[in-house]
Nucleic acid binder design. Structure first.
Lengths: 141, 141
DNA sequence: TTGCCTGCAAATCGTTTGCATCCGA
DNA sequence: TCGGATGCAAACGATTTGCAGGCAA
């Protein structure tokens, strides 16, 4: 896995640093779609001197070279996902968690859009909102 | 049109002010999905003393009472849409404009998701990205 | 060795908040 | 009249930027 990252970074002319590998690793091993702050917190124990700025600079690079995708699920911060396959996301309006939705056939939907629009399509993101199974049992919202 | 806004505001216990009507009117008459700043700029000539804070407070209320929806098309700011029907949006990666996509059958897609997820669904947003017809003719990206 | 990278701090920018005054009901 | 609304300025929080020292190649 890190071979792919290392290769891609070198291929695009970027240096391979421990920080960059660590940040990618966090994303690749997580299903939580962490924000920059969450990545930072998670690496804090292992890279005590790492800066939040480095996290931001790194995710920007990882996005540019196509190793991750950026999510914007209506929150005040961005989230990052190392799973670059085309899949919808869903965010719990109560606890804020963001989950993947897999095994959905999106092709028909996209080709419909491609037919209707005069834009040349380059990408898409689908966001659903609701209440996760844990939060459905809880009180107010 | 403003009757509906007036009625809804009163019904929910909010006062009807010129600022609120003006802000809604801007949204209702626009296809551009303006941000708070854009709404503010557009009203500046007619309401020179209006504050950006008022725009933010008002769109929050309009969203709460279901008169508008909030868009988050991967930019650094939110956009607002008085068309609360369920429709995808598309943003030009070159010039930044955001357009509606209508006449798309979304029902099948949504019911697929409803079947797959354990969430109780409450809403959704679909964003497409690409290059608008104007920008397709231009140079670099 | 050399230029890109990191980490720190300061700067930005969209958005929110506190508060005194104002105005719709 | 009176409580909610406005407008101003300050506060906030996420993200970006400038720069000096550090490290990958």
């Amino acid at each position: 896995m890190e071979n792919r990252v290392t290769a891609k970074l070198r291929e695009k002319g970027f240096k391979v640093t421990p920080q960059r590998l660590a940040i990618y690793k966090v994303l690749a091993n997580s299903k939580a779609h962490p924000s920059a702050e969450m990545i930072f917190q998670q690496l804090q124990p292992y890279y005590p001197t790492m800066s939040l700025a480095t996290v931001y600079k790194t995710v920007e690079i990882l996005k540019e070279i196509g190793l991750i995708q950026v999510l914007n699920a209506g929150e005040d911060s961005f989230r990052y996902d190392a799973d670059i396959s085309m899949h919808p996301h869903i965010r719990c309006l109560q606890c804020g968690r963001v989950d993947d939705i897999h095994e959905i056939d999106i092709a028909a939907f996209i080709s419909q859009v491609a037919d209707k629009t005069s834009y040349r399509l380059a990408g898409q993101q689908f966001y659903f909102y609701g209440y996760c199974s844990t939060c459905q049992g809880k009180p107010a919202n």
